[in-house]
Design a protein around this nucleic acid. Structure first.
Lengths: 350, 350
DNA sequence: TTGAAAGCGTTACCAA
DNA sequence: TTGGTAACGCTTTCAA
């Protein structure tokens, strides 16, 4: 009650606004806005005066008002299929790094593998008028994202085909990864290869499988390939496969395995290591996919394909920011990054 | 150019607003707002008319405008020290579940263990006028959070003492967890116990250590306790400790180890399993902390203390929402949840 | 149940 | 450089 200055209608209980700051500092409203947003445009003396008023009043700018006035916010939204997967968290790190370097904030939304949640967050970001949206999509769920895009908000997809003609996308070459994994085994002399995982058409796992098939096909029949499907790509599924393999007769046993994911590989390695154990990699070489921490933290470090998550996120944010900043000259691009093979004990021994 | 209705000044290029929808549907602006926010308040007939107009125009509500008008948004911000740690991601899941059930959205910000980033996101959420903020803080960095709170925005901390008198907090009883871990080993007959990790005063690790000390003290000297410090709590640190332990003379070897974190335990188990290996748990029983996936996915499943991340997040969101919804009657509370012991092979054998 | 109008706190523009 | 002012699109209140 004691801090009423000369406000005719007492504005108590409200947070101070730029108007209050302006009054206190004895300047115009626009000047306060300039001090906050482009301090260079204001004379040293005025700026100090305004800043003092800001501190005294405990002024906190209202970004909602700013977003309304400008038609867009200073934030980028990243809707991601699964933050529990370090691949996507790495993307978020890369994207944040890039966004930050251009003065934007990155806010995260976790879809937790639910297409509904994903679309709900896309709608939220769209309605909040974020500057742009990054999307690591749930497979087969891009209709809504396309709608958002069609309504004018820039959307860049990471790690999921976004075949709208009117957009940027950053992809990872899963087919090539599968190819590299199989080539690795073949070059190590393996001739009876199994691909474990899937089938899930139009998913990364499927693309990896195709790559494996290509590598095998190139051997003109010198290498045999079989496909062992699993329900999901969890450790348990790998364990079941490993268990089943143990009861096979030696001539039907593969000598090289490409697992669609590291978790599968870990499960298999463990199941095959139980006495009477097969020797890895002597009897069977195993290579996984994802460079999951589990792959290198186990007793037998597992060879794998590492995906450049951070780089993908960074590249996606770069494309998005280009579209945001230069809508006129921006040209949509589709970037494909390559996974890298990391050879460890499970294929090349100690 | 063909879609100009009867707008005197052509409003082309702009996204349609509620005004446009109202005009199209032949109703008043306020009615459109009601259709969007409280459809029950509008007659069936009007509602359908308005909804049709919304679809035809491709109207997307502007939440920035809504937040401005109402003074607060429909969103809760969760600033978290490290989304790479599944403990905190679980919190996010629990918080989201609770928020969603009360019609609010949860947006995530990853501080990545940087106090600066944390404060920067706190400022962002504060400036965006979110309904409230959840904070899983970086240790020793609560000044700014207190400032935000003092400026009127509800902040609830999870897993970090927030000793402002004027706030809610959800804590986990690390001291009790350490106590449980040590009791477990003692009840299994272990008499030479080592605590591995820390020291980092005023952190969870330190509190766990204190709990271990208490359990040991209760034996009146029947049990010996030593502290083996580490630089961090990573697998590598555990490996080093395991390695060092191997070269000890048998009488100086602990028969029970409480690791401050599962990663440490994993590293030790692996180092001790290399031939000539010690038998786990016969020679030495090991218990970790966190219920990390690594703890149960390894060759030797490791006993651990499981923290109720999801429940903590849910409880925190509940407290926050109560404060948001009933600011008048809300009473600040401090909740402490208990970790649960999970006994596995590394202490109780097969 | 519906219509009209007054803010909400910025930004951006133009004049001084 | 600074001051004044008109949007921005919604929520909310008050009458009709």
């Amino acid at each position: 009650m004691s801090d009423r200055e000369k406000d005719p209608p007492s504005r108590a209980g409200r947070q101070p606004s730029m108007v209050d700051v302006a009054r206190r500092a004895g300047v115009a409203l626009g000047t306060v806005s300039n001090v906050v947003n482009q301090p260079g445009k204001v004379s040293e003396k005025t700026r100090l005066k305004v800043q003092a008023a800001i501190e005294e009043l405990g002024f906190v700018r209202n970004r909602a008002a700013g977003s309304l006035a400008r038609g867009t916010s200073n934030t980028i939204g990243f809707v991601t299929i699964d933050l529990g997967n370090s691949f996507f968290l790495d993307m978020a790190r890369g994207a944040e790094e890039q966004a930050q370097s251009m003065g934007k904030y990155l806010l995260l939304a976790n879809a937790d593998v639910s297409a509904d949640k994903q679309d709900s967050y896309l709608a939220l970001f769209n309605e909040e008028r974020v500057a742009g949206i990054l999307l690591a999509p749930v497979p087969h769920s891009l209709e809504y994202a396309a709608w958002v895009r069609a309504h004018g908000r820039p959307v860049v997809t990471v790690n999921g085909a976004f075949d709208e003609p009117d957009s940027c996308a950053v992809l990872i070459d899963n087919e090539h990864g599968g190819y590299l994994a199989a080539r690795h085994l073949i070059e190590l002399g393996r001739r009876r290869i199994a691909f474990v995982g899937g089938p899930d058409f139009l998913t990364p796992v499927h693309e990896r499988h195709v790559g494996v098939e290509r590598a095998v096909a190139e051997t003109n029949g010198a290498v045999r390939l079989e496909h062992i499907p699993t329900r999901e790509e969890q450790t348990g599924d790998g364990g079941e496969v490993g268990h089943a393999l143990r009861s096979r007769s030696p001539d039907r046993m593969p000598d090289g395995i490409v697992a669609a994911a590291d978790l599968l590989a870990v499960g298999m390695v463990q199941a095959l290591s139980v006495a009477p154990s097969l020797s890895i990699p002597r009897d069977v070489a195993i290579i996984g996919y994802d460079n999951n921490r589990l792959a290198w933290d186990g007793t037998i470090p597992i060879s794998t394909l590492s995906q450049p998550g951070r780089e993908m996120g960074k590249a996606a944010a770069e494309l998005l920011l280009d579209e945001i900043l230069h809508p006129a000259t921006h040209v949509h691009r589709r970037l494909t990054l390559e996974p890298t093979l990391i050879a460890r004990q499970s294929t090349i021994g100690e």
